[in-house]
Design a protein around this nucleic acid. Structure first.
Lengths: 226, 226
DNA sequence: CGGAGGCTGACAGCCGGATTACAAATGCGT
DNA sequence: ACGCATTTGTAATCCGGCTGTCAGCCTCCG
């Protein structure tokens, strides 16, 4: 199995190459978009790992070029934490999966293997709870069939809550997943964000989906009928 | 559940070992990187708690060695400074979670449990005794199928009693696990907390599950029918 | 019968969360 | 690059109810 890594950052690139080699793959690494694109279309790979942050020709162009070439070549792209639009864009351009930096190597490995086996995205496209739906691809949210505009943070927060539906998520976890920060106890940014999200998806609907667990965090769940 | 602590600092190491032992885990403590690495790969642990600040072979090398060994062994690392790069480095090297020192012991315990649950799912999600159930993820308690609202302290206390079902738990142990404090003999906070818990889960139900052992502490158990 | 240990109800301080207003930052179009 | 609109973080305040303390009572056991 041959894998091509297109990554500008030296540390990350070397790290990925080494890790994947150790996992038993044949790995090539190129450090800029132009070369990456050429290599990807001329040689024969089973998978491309692509950083979207590249100097010169960026990840989008590379991805577009690969897709224009018509090959059925799985592409896994790497994107910064809070860029939901980036992920949407990537998936719309035909990437097969994405990973948010920073990530655990084991996570990358798992996805690489899945892509090689199935060749398709492992991401569900629509998350839902009761009459609430969240479409990852289109970046759209509806409740009771009515469309709701969410900001980036609200969307990311709701996505997290939906993915871990039924679990009480501590503030510290939410902070690390939705914000790129450690929990700084003297900020109520999360509370406020939840408030704003509630205003849009819960205030004028029933049942209420977001529940506060005092001293613990927040859960999104469909309440049991009494 | 076996946990390995790799920690150079004496005080922290002892503190962690004692706390985790009291929580019911089997705990080994190693005080330097070289031994730690060796122990981690040769023996059979369910989790490693790893300080990155180690003399000689540092935490990164230990982590790398463990991962190179190919085991699917959850690693929680402790970092002194709140440096984003450190955190990223740790996660990239394959750690599963991190904690910034200083931390509350209860926080560590929560994360340890999460990792154990996620890693192997041997860790139960629902604790129960007779018709009493406690759902850790949803943070919900029912008795005889009726939902019961518990406060944070009540929940923590009941969780402890259920985890150590059948064991008589001395007040001092309860104090250290549920409160982040040492037992201060001239407080009856624990008695009061137990009273309040009983009011909710025992008063209007049979059989009574919480029993007082005079001079010893409290046990939660399903009484044998006479 | 006395004392220690445990139970109980009242009470008040305090904590965690909700809410709102405002300031800073981000981003978008030109 | 600039200015405007929107988003996002911070801070201040409010509120309910959690939780530790205490005083008095009960119960077990010597």
């Amino acid at each position: 199995m041959k894998i091509l890594i297109i990554e500008d950052e030296h540390k990350t690139g070397d790290y990925l190459k080494q890790g994947l080699s150790e996992a038993g793959f044949v790995v090539d690494l190129v450090r800029n978009g132009t070369d990456g694109m050429h290599t990807a279309v001329t040689e024969d790979y089973d998978l491309v790992v692509l950083d979207v942050m590249l100097p010169g020709m960026d990840g989008w162009q590379v991805l577009k070029a690969i897709r224009a070439d018509g090959k059925d070549l799985p592409v896994l792209f790497l994107t910064a934490r809070d860029r939901v639009e980036e992920r949407v864009k990537g998936l719309e351009l035909g990437a097969d999966d994405y990973l948010v930096k920073p990530f655990a190597f084991s996570e990358l490995l798992a996805r690489v293997r899945t892509l090689l086996r199935r060749g398709k995205s492992i991401e569900p496209v629509v998350l839902s709870a009761a009459d609430l739906e969240l479409d990852l691809l289109r970046h759209r949210v509806t409740r009771a069939r009515k469309q709701i505009d969410l900001t980036t943070k609200e969307f990311a927060l709701l996505e997290l809550l939906l993915r871990r539906q039924g679990e009480v998520l501590p503030r510290s976890l939410i902070a690390s997943q939705v914000w790129d920060m450690n929990f700084d106890s003297d900020t109520n940014a999360i509370d406020v964000a939840v408030r704003r999200l509630r205003a849009k998806i819960d205030d004028e609907f029933e049942p209420k989906l977001i529940r506060t667990v005092r001293g613990m965090g927040y859960v999104l769940e469909v309440p049991e009928r009494a």
